[in-house]
Every structure is written in structure tokens, then in C-alpha cells.
Amino acid sequence: MSVPMVEARGVHKSYAGVQVLKGVDLTVVRGEVTCLIGPSGSGKSTLLRCINHLEKHDSGELRVDGELVGYEMRGTKLHELNDKRICAERSQIGMVFQRFNLFQHLTVLDNVTIGLIKVRGLDSDAARKKARELLARVGLSEKDKHYPSQLSGGQQQRVAIARALAMEPKLMLFDEPTSALDPELVGEVLDVMKDLALSGMTMIVVTHEMGFAREVANTVYFLDEGIIEESGTPADVLGAPKSERLKSFLSKVL
């Protein structure tokens, strides 16, 4: 078996003395979709943000594609990587945020090209060509000259997905991608994500959309108070929960 895309062993993280992650173990297999579910404050988003080093974890081992995230083993010591190396690692990992976080001052097209131009060093013609393809893929070819504020939430989130995909990431992180959307707009974003999963993208999705988890996920992890309470196939975790906590959580969200 090849190296897993993401491997976490005993990952800890605390903010100002409050432990958010208390030793998380997680394995994400290449080409699979992993959903993280759990009540708010359980540490799902924090775990996701540790994976692309937007947050530094305090202890434990976290590897993406076999490489330690944000650190380097030299001899017996872990050395924190410099800004440039971390950026290089991050550019391989796409991230989609709950609040879209599109660059408000740039058009839709420029939102997608900016990473290609500034990080990958593509010239603007090549970047535009690629951006147009991706916008077509998320069904927004017509909106390339619009500004984010002129789009609906669902459209903005699809642009955000295109922006992340432009970097040709090996892993995509979704941080509650549909939580800030009006109910009737959730579907269009989930459809794009399903297509992406079918294309073989490795994805980690923090979500409250149990239907999506059941349908698309290969593995579901249930986090509660900073630990993985239960994990397994969607049928096991969502269909036959063992712990009381997961049972009560599912009874509230389903």
C-alpha cells in the first residue's frame, strides 16, 4: 500500500491553555473522500487548519504525502520550516472556507488566476486560459468579469473551489463549505464537490451535510472534544453508531 495522503498521530493543539485537539489519529487514503463530523467546538476545523499549517500543532506527528507538515526532522530534532518552504507545501493543498474568502477587490477571473501568476509564476495568458477552463467546470463561465460581491453565496463558493483547483492540489480541504449558504444554494456546491470526488481528488470535508457524507465519503470521522470518538465507513458511523455521544449528535442533526 502506498503512503497515505494524510497521516496524523497523536496531534495536540491548544489555544491559550484550552486543549482543542487531544491526540488525534487520522489516516486519509489517496483518492478517497474523508468527512469530519462533530459538534461545533469539537476541533474539526482546527484539525483541518493544522493540515495546511494555517495553525501550528503543538505536538504529535502530522504528515501530508509522507512529509511532515511545517517541520523538518534534522537529526533528532524537529525544525520549523521557513516561510518559503511552508508556502511551497501549502500551494499543494487546496482549501475552501466556510465564508468563501474570495478576494473582494478582484474579479472572478482574477481570483482564479492570482495564485497561478503569483505563486506558480505562470504568465497571465496561460493563467487565464486555465482559469476559464476551471470556471467552466464549476459552471460559471459567464461570471468571469463580475466581482465576488455581485455573486450569490453558492456561486462565490464555486469560484472559491475553482480558485483552489487552479493550483492543481494533491489534496483539497473543505471547511464547512455549505454552512454559510442559503438552503437552496447548498445543492449546487455539493454537486461540484461530488464531481470532484468522482474525478479522484483526495478530499477532507468538515461538514454538517450528513447526506453528502453518506453518499460521497469513503471514511467518516466523528470528533468530539478534541478526540476521534468513532470512525469507519459512512454506513457504520452514520448507520450504526456505537457511542452514546455519536447517537445523540446524530439524533440532533439528522
Binding site: C87, F97, N101, G115, V119, R163, A164, M167
Partner: peptide, 12 residues
């Protein structure tokens, strides 16, 4: 969120 998005793209 704007700088987080920029950093997640790999910008310095």
C-alpha cells in the same frame, strides 16, 4: 479570512 485564503494558495 482574506489573508488566510491568500496563504492557503501558497502566497508568502
Amino acid at each position: 479570512g482574506q489573508s488566510e485564503a491568500a496563504m492557503s494558495l501558497g502566497m508568502t
